[in-house]
Design a binder for these strands. Structure first.
Lengths: 383, 383
DNA sequence: ATCGGTAACTTGACCGATACAGAAACCTCC
DNA sequence: GGAGGTTTCTGTATCGGTCAAGTTACCGAT
């Protein structure tokens, strides 16, 4: 044991057993390749290759014989890497996520989207590789991992990762990204959805409205002096939702306060909501970038002894399953993340086919509708 | 900025639109490789390679020059596939799931596990490839996708997929699988956990107990004539949990009925639970293979007008977040899926290092503890 | 003047396959 | 019986790199 075993601690704590020294046999023996089998059977390497890939190119008995000796010698079939090199395709497509891959398993909207992608990919036999936007040790997944195409799902603002993918000339589908005519894109109508949410609170008589948003650069915290300007370099979705909110609120003559949530999560959102609600002319309604942030708003309200929707209305976005788990249940803007996944995967497989046939990709742009779902967290402005 | 949103109309009307013919440029031009740049700069291919991989092998000015022309020519850096072939490593590890990949995004236990894996892999820069146990079109991911190692997480019973992985000689970590001394394995103490659950209902006085289990071959439906025997070819976890249940119930003199749930899900579980509870000498307690199945039990009880835990006790397994979302909250056996993921990922990276150094893998076997969590769904036997 | 050492590149082999263009044997048919 | 078409298998080039072992040229030290 050259280094302290990282598992030792777990082991002690939990009762680890080390099985007897029945150690895995490392096959340091010369590797079995097509050539090995070719030599053994006495045919050319090419014939062996054909036995695996094109049964019609050789006689049945010969194929049998080859397959049998391949089996006997412990050959596993053509090496995926070598095959990928010469064929120019790997059998896997990527999904570009943020630098935090686990996000793809934790956020309900993301899992919904990814489940749809998986479902849609199933009949194609393609595997799914999760790519983080930031690698370590000089490894940049977007540049260094072999895939046939990528769904650009959620990446950091600057996203050099995305640029690498573009440079590589990979078939791409942009999901919830600033559309680019060069690639198919799939997204939801964030702008319209945000307008619906804003109109809803305006209709309820609210004229002091707080906005909880995220997706800005990491430095940005707290209240924004000039939201429109500040948001310029932000994540596309954030920009669109913010624009939707403001485009309704401002003409309605509402007083708007925008707070930026630095780290995505209800805790941090609650913090900002507290700041927002602590001010003298506190908002009577909060529009949140997402249900997760809205949940933070609810939490803050509870802590401050404000009733929802009596003293404060809170509107979320996404219709995350979370929305019906919190109390009061969230009024929110529904998006269909599953449909988004389906469309995205479909667009990607189409692009893959096009690339293989050397056809130009058909520039599809899907915009899925959003709709307002009124539940318990919104009501008439107080007073 | 308050421009009329160009997409709003489209979204409402159709949801789909095709941008003008600004088609993606398919780079049918000869591809840019190391050689292209080498020729342009007037050095050997190897020097260009070194410019990217070993800065210390050439002079700084030369490196600058190479990098500059590489950039000018639109070179993306060494091709991942070619590099993988010659280096013998791909930069991605796999997770073998069932034939239904989406399961990995839908089941809370699975997402928890996978999130941990992602977290643990983050500092390594490795990407995560989801492998389905069954491919289509003659594609078998376990055989045909290039990865450096695999977490064998949940695969169908027969699992030729697993066999392929073994044959390929890949570093493997078995998670919740029948342990094999040749590979590190990580699992939870299913047997002990099941005993705890069974002992709990026995202690509460229950002597007629139903078991809802899954993980048998697809054909198996409904009540099992001889559970011990029937379970022989089952999924490891299912076998262990069933054994734990029976090893406590039988000595206690309980009457046991075992129903197998063919398709994992609360709907189908509810169906079996109804059958079970419809019989004359109906069980007073149900032990479920998982919280998901237990939720089915609750549902059936409600439909039949039985109160829980008054008329019927229900005990789950896993301590899925679901357990505290259903009413009454489930008594269950807690497992730490996140810790499982952490250990598994750690064991895999250790195996990877060992393989690279041509050392034998250290045969670790981690068994994580399980504990009973008593909530509202279990109570004294009626009568 | 010779020698060893090193910085800076180059050479040739090889990773494990597949594509494509033959070539040899085998039919078939008039 | 030979043209023409198949079937079945072989040879060679190539995919885009990296590795290990050279080859120069230059430099200070003996």
């Amino acid at each position: 044991m050259p280094e302290p075993d990282p598992l030792a601690a777990v082991a002690v704590a939990t009762g680890v057993r080390r099985p007897a020294a029945h150690v895995a046999t490392i096959a340091s023996v010369a590797r079995v390749t097509l050539q090995t089998i070719a030599d053994e059977v006495g045919v050319s390497r090419m014939t062996v290759s054909n036995a695996f890939n094109r049964p019609d190119q050789l006689s049945a008995p010969m194929r049998e014989k080859i397959l049998a000796t391949a089996d006997r010698l412990g050959y596993t079939g053509p090496d995926p890497t070598a095959r990928a090199l010469v064929r120019g395709s790997t059998g896997a497509v990527g999904v570009l996520l943020t630098d935090d891959l686990a996000y793809g398993f934790r956020d309900a909207v993301a899992t919904d989207f990814l489940a749809a992608v998986a479902d849609e990919l199933r009949p194609t036999g393609l595997s799914l590789t999760l790519l983080s936007s930031e690698g370590r040790d000089g490894v940049v997944p977007a540049r260094d991992v072999a895939v046939d195409g990528v769904l650009v799902f959620s990446c950091s603002l600057d996203s050099t990762a995305r640029d690498w993918l573009v440079k590589r000339g990979l078939p791409l589908v942009l999901v919830d990204q600033e559309p680019d005519p060069a690639f198919p894109s799939v997204r939801i109508d964030d702008y319209h959805g945000a307008r619906l949410a804003a109109q809803h609170v305006v209709d309820l008589g609210h004229r002091r409205v707080g906005i909880l948003i995220s997706g800005g650069s990491p430095g940005t915290v707290g209240r924004l002096a000039d939201p429109r300007r500040d948001a310029e370099g932000w994540k596309y979705v954030s920009r669109r939702r913010l624009a939707g909110f403001l485009d309704v609120l401002e003409p309605a003559g509402a007083t708007v306060v925008v707070h930026h949530v630095d780290q995505y999560g209800d805790r941090v959102a609650a913090e900002q909501a507290r700041l927002m609600l602590g001010s003298d002319a506190r908002p009577t309604a909060i529009l949140a970038y997402s249900d997760v942030l809205a949940a933070g708003g609810l939490r803050a309200a509870e802590e401050l002894g404000l009733t929802v929707p009596g003293d404060l209305s809170v509107v979320g976005f996404d219709d995350n399953p979370l929305a019906t788990r919190v109390r009061p249940e969230l009024t929110t803007v529904r998006q269909d993340a599953y449909a988004k996944g389906t469309s995205a995967a479909r667009a990607l497989t189409a692009s893959l086919r096009a690339a293989k046939a050397d056809r130009p990709v058909e520039p599809v742009e899907v915009v899925l509708p959003t709709e307002l779902v009124v539940r318990e967290s919104s009501g008439p402005a107080p007073g």
